[in-house]
Amino acid sequence: MHGFAFDIAHLLAGSLVLVSLLLLYQDRMSALLNVFALHAVLLALSVGWQAHIQDAPHLYVTAAIALIFKAIIIPGGLRRIVKKLGIHREIETVVGIGLTMLAGIALVALAMVVMLRATAGADPLAREDLAFALSIVLLGLLMMVSRRNAVSQVVGFMSLENGLVLAATGAKGMPLVVEISVAFSVLIAFIVIGIFLFRIRERFDTVDIGALDQVGGERG
């Protein structure tokens, strides 16, 4: 039975890494948001599974937050913003997709090497969960630096945060996980409202971060 529980946990965490890689090469806004919703659903399943095998009912709350808030409400809200701003066609990337994918694969390899070496003593489920989680975090970071558009940066940040929740739930019996996932949800809600407010104030024509650089010459 332990083997089966272990395999399912692995499967879900591994799929999250795969979907993170999928996020990297989406070049349309609507597709990006759909893939992110899938990411959040997988996270909810993974957290729910951890709640089941660790016999930790409070983790179901975290799973529910992931499902309702991150898979439904946030992508829905972002879709509306994207439609209102009319930026659903192209996503500007800083470097080409191919190069980004290569960098992504390198980061996953790096995460595996670092985590598996550093945690040789820990129990196998925890260490491999951590390796997956670190890959997701690094891929999220890569997405944030390789995109110029504010909405896709936010998607990158949320996928990064999903990796953190995965790590936190994989750490058996960690206190405050629910509180931390609530705190993160508040943070994300703030970010999304922030984007929305930028637009409502009509201070900018786009939410392209590059276009916000008004103080130009003073940049350090």
Binding site: A126, L130, A133, V137, L164, A167, A168
Partner: peptide, 12 residues
């Protein structure tokens, strides 16, 4: 976010 990852690792 990075600080949280570090925090989780300390707990582990």
């Amino acid at each position: 976010a990075m600080a949280l990852f570090g925090t989780i690792l300390v707990y582990m």
